[in-house]
Design a protein around this nucleic acid. Structure first.
Length: 486
RNA sequence: GGCGACAUAGCCAAGUGGUAAGGCAGGGGUCUGCAAAACCCCCAUCCCCAGUUCGAAUCUGGGUGUCGCCUCCA
């Protein structure tokens, strides 16, 4: 089985064959840190994270570049609005992104270059374009002339006339064509600047990616990724710049685009009030549940985020871990088989099929159940089966255990004041709070149960349930009790 | 106005020619002081219409609907 991927360039699924056997060079458009990273970012980067893991697991030596566009109009606007230096905005949101990336378990890119540290390469590329006669200077910047590129529009499948018909915005008259885009923007007073042959200024959006691709992966490389919304104009313009500058095409043999995320059926946006900051969500749910949720949908399909769906995904993943733990528990004695009863070929085949993570996840759920059943009749199978399943989890970037995924006893619980007071009354102690208070109530309930005072024990359990703490008694003999939530 | 994607059970969702994976929720049962957990079982004919085919959720044509792109966006 070999990897097949949907290529935006050809709008079809093709066998994936890197230029150099055994090696893959891939570039994914990263963050522009001008605001809080959101759930949509998570989906895109999670998609390419799984691709990266799958490629590596398939034996490829992958060079993965994920850039940071750390200078751009929105960053400047944001800084102006807040009255802080532009680089403070960058640092703040980039730190926030990196914190989230860590929680989500995103593998570190081989390189994560930043636009502001690539100025010589950017300037050099613009000079090349000028030398080739496809760029021109105006009083406010340097522009790329789209009509000089006969292939313009090939990635997004648009032609210039169509695009011009859609133009809505009054255009700066100095541009020769409304579709021409800035390679370099000459600075207005107060804006951050870098020196250039055209005077102090900053790069236009798009050119930084062309420059970084070339520097880290060369004039041509295997795969370029990003989210769907980047196809036009960002990637189209990147292609135009790079290919006219180098004369080599295609700059990337495969283009992959992750589907966009909607929230409650609508595009996520600040104005609609449905903007979901990644960090906030990761504080409420285990990151692994978020990952599981996204992997449950094909990466190219539009995905709709709802709380219900995420909670369902969280429970589904939790259930998988519980079953896996059961298999582990029976892996104790006996001579382990060298091979598992559960073969992972099917799992790999799903991923080879244009990264069908949803199918792979479905297979995994079934595999765990089978492994659990097998462990009962044949305990010796457990070892190998656990290994197979853990390998699969690893390729999907999911932790191996519920604990590692962040499901822990609620040590740091914060009780709602009303519930806290109820619990304190039941405990007969007005000082206790949080986990200690919950423990006290559970202890009292155990006593009541021992005395067969079920009315009292139920009252205590109901109070805990109301406070969001779920009590799960285990089968007598197992001892102990489980506590979940809130 | 132009371009495109999507449309499978209450929800999330896989499945591109042979009679519908998986998860969540729901229902029934075993067990249990009760509840939970665990285990077993049940739960869709695939937006509509017309075609192609021995046979279609899967192909073709026509509708309808939702979302998106054409301006900033992962």
């Amino acid at each position: 089985m070999a990897l097949r991927l949907y290529n935006t360039l050809t709008r079809s699924i093709e066998p994936f064959e890197p230029a150099q056997a055994g090696k893959v060079s891939m570039y994914v458009c990263g963050m522009t840190p001008s605001f809080h990273p959101h759930l949509g970012h998570a989906r895109t980067f999670l998609t390419f994270d799984v691709l990266l893991r799958h490629l590596r697991a398939s034996g490829y030596d992958v060079t993965y570049v994920r850039n940071v566009t750390d200078i751009d109009d929105r960053i400047i606007d944001r800084a102006a609005k807040e009255g802080v230096p532009w680089d403070q905005v960058v640092t703040r949101y980039l730190d926030e992104f990196e914190e989230c990336a860590k929680l989500l378990g995103l593998l570190e890119p081989t390189f994560s270059p930043r636009a502001t540290r690539e100025m010589p390469q950017i300037v050099e590329l613009i000079e090349r374009l000028q030398a080739r006669g496809v760029a021109y200077e105006t009083s406010d910047g340097v522009y790329f002339s789209v009509e000089k590129d006969p292939e313009y529009g090939s990635l997004s499948r648009r032609n210039l006339d169509e695009l011009r018909a859609g133009e809505r915005i009054a255009v700066r008259e100095e541009k020769r064509d409304p579709l021409d885009f800035a390679l370099w923007k000459k600075a207005k007073p107060g804006e951050p600047t870098w020196p250039s042959p055209w005077g102090p200024g900053r790069p236009g959006w798009h050119i930084e990616c062309s420059a970084m691709c070339r520097r880290y992966l060369g004039d041509r490389f295997d795969l370029h990724g990003g989210a769907m919304d980047l196809i036009f104009p960002h990637h189209e313009n990147e292609v135009a710049q790079t290919e006219t500058a180098t004369g080599l095409r295609p700059m990337a043999r495969y283009w992959m685009h992750a589907g966009l995320l909607n929230v409650d059926g609508q595009k996520m946006s600040k104005s609609l009030g449905n903007f979901v900051p990644m960090k906030e969500l990761l504080q409420r749910y285990p990151a692994a549940a978020v990952r599981y949720q996204f992997l449950q949908t094909g990466y190219r399909k539009p995905s709709n985020y709802t709380t219900t769906a995420l909670e369902g995904a969280a429970k589904g993943l939790r259930g998988l871990y519980d079953e896996l733990d059961a298999v582990r528990a029976s892996a104790g004695d006996g001579v382990p088989h060298s091979e598992g009863l559960v073969a992972a070929d099917a799992f790999d085949a799903f991923l080879d099929d244009d990264l069908n993570t949803a199918g792979a996840l479905g297979w995994l759920q079934t595999a765990v159940r089978e492994a659990k059943a097998a462990a009962i009749s044949d305990p010796a199978s457990a070892h190998a089966n656990v290994a197979v399943i853990e390998r699969c989890l690893g390729i999907l970037g999911l932790p191996a255990t519920a604990l590692a995924a962040g499901w822990t006893a609620p040590r740091g619980v914060v009780l709602d004041p009303a519930h806290r007071d109820t619990l304190r009354a039941l405990a007969g102690d007005g000082q206790l709070d949080g986990a200690a208070l919950i423990d006290k109530i559970i202890e009292l309930r155990e006593e009541a149960r021992t005395k067969k005072n079920f009315a009292a024990s139920d009252r205590l359990r109901d109070a805990l349930t109301a406070a969001g703490v779920e009590v799960k008694d285990k089968k007598a003999g197992d001892g102990g009790r489980g506590v979940d939530g809130p």
